[in-house]
Design a binder for these strands. Structure first.
Lengths: 207, 207
DNA sequence: CATTGTTTTAATCAAATGATTAATCATATA
DNA sequence: TATATGATTAATCATTTGATTAAAACAATG
């Protein structure tokens, strides 16, 4: 009898490479990241990178999926949850964005750059966001006269602009306002409450 | 009699290089743009690039100044114009952003990336924006009870998030909403009117 | 024209870079 | 222990890339 012991065959090298690649690819352009940088950051021999992943590009695709795929999957779940109201969803979405981006502030710029470089870098399901339950709920609110009418694209751009943009503009904001990371983060946490309030004000029907 | 024709002393090569460099550097990362690409795009010999500009980096700096320097200079003028009211400035700023970015939709992502890569890529005067006449006017509005109180950084991030973010997210927005350039541009033009209305709604004091 | 200075070109260089190879090390299994 | 299998290393390869050079083409000047 042999118990077959192969659950984790020193998977650590592989993992270290992915972690290093993610770190570097998220903050720098693809061409700016050298395979030697990744190897050094991971503390492994350059050849191991190709041994495990075949090429720089394959490794990048893994990072891309981790960064973009997971993020969009979670957003999709929130947008299509039928148990939460329209306005509650706004609160939950803002909260989700700020939580996720506080941990990973370089993510938004990464996503925007990949989307610009080639639309096919985005997961195919992305277009489904355009027919989410959230937007159906917004149409219902409009019909019922409980929310100002605007194109659904404007609604989405406003929500993302108020929640995500500050993170992609972090470096600029810090310089313009002469603040440090701590102050910047404090402001971002304030926005958890503020952005939903602002969104409501924008959607409120004037009497 | 000869009319002496020397107004443009075949400056064309130099100009063609700058134009090509600007085109490529604005849309792609520095390391992703090869000097050979620039030469090809400009239709000149590779060596001419170094003949006129010394190095790829020097050429990049010229593009950077053109892209960022001019933009910030104009914004500064608007922000510090003492002849326009606070709310009027919001309208003028939104109008300025949308006009400029409609012509050059890749600019915002370029600026955000340069700011992230190194804060010193931003013009030094940038920090002056933090003490602009516009923000002084906002403080006056708050004191007079004519505008909701919020941190000035929030105000700036909201204005930029609503005006500029859509352009940096253009590729993503087009995919999510399944729209083309024409429709996207139409939406952006609508925002000239809408963003000031939304900003006012956010700043309005609830009774 | 001849001369001089500027612009343009083709060829080439040296360094950087993604990838491969062949050898070595480690570990588990028979 | 011997052997097979997978992990790791140093050395090397072929291409790409920013930059240089030396010569040629061009234009203005005396």
């Amino acid at each position: 009898m042999k118990p077959i012991k192969k659950p984790e065959p020193t998977e650590s090298a592989r993992q270290k490479i992915i972690a290093a690649a993610r770190l570097l690819f998220t903050k720098n352009a693809y061409t700016a990241v050298k395979t030697r940088d990744i190897a050094k950051e991971a503390g492994i021999n350059l050849a191991l990178l190709n041994y495990y992943f075949g090429s720089k590009e394959k490794l990048f695709e893994i990072v891309m999926t981790e960064n973009i795929g997971h993020f969009f999957k979670d957003v999709t779940l929130l947008l299509n949850d039928e148990r939460t109201t329209f306005f509650r969803k706004i609160e939950l979405l803002v909260d989700f964005y700020i939580t996720r981006l506080t941990d990973n502030p370089d993510l938004p710029l990464f996503v925007l750059i990949q989307a610009r470089n080639s639309a096919k870098n985005l997961p195919n399901k992305v277009h489904r966001l355009g027919s989410s339950f959230f937007l159906k709920q917004y149409r219902d609110e409009m019909k019922a006269g409980r929310a100002v009418k605007m194109d659904e694209t404007h609604l989405m751009l406003n929500l993302l602009g108020l929640s995500i943009f500050p993170f992609s503009a972090r470096a600029m904001a810090k310089k313009i306002r002469s603040i440090d990371d701590k102050e910047f983060n404090k402001l971002m946490q304030e926005r958890r409450k503020l952005v939903p309030i602002w969104m409501k004000a924008m959607l409120e029907i004037k009497k």
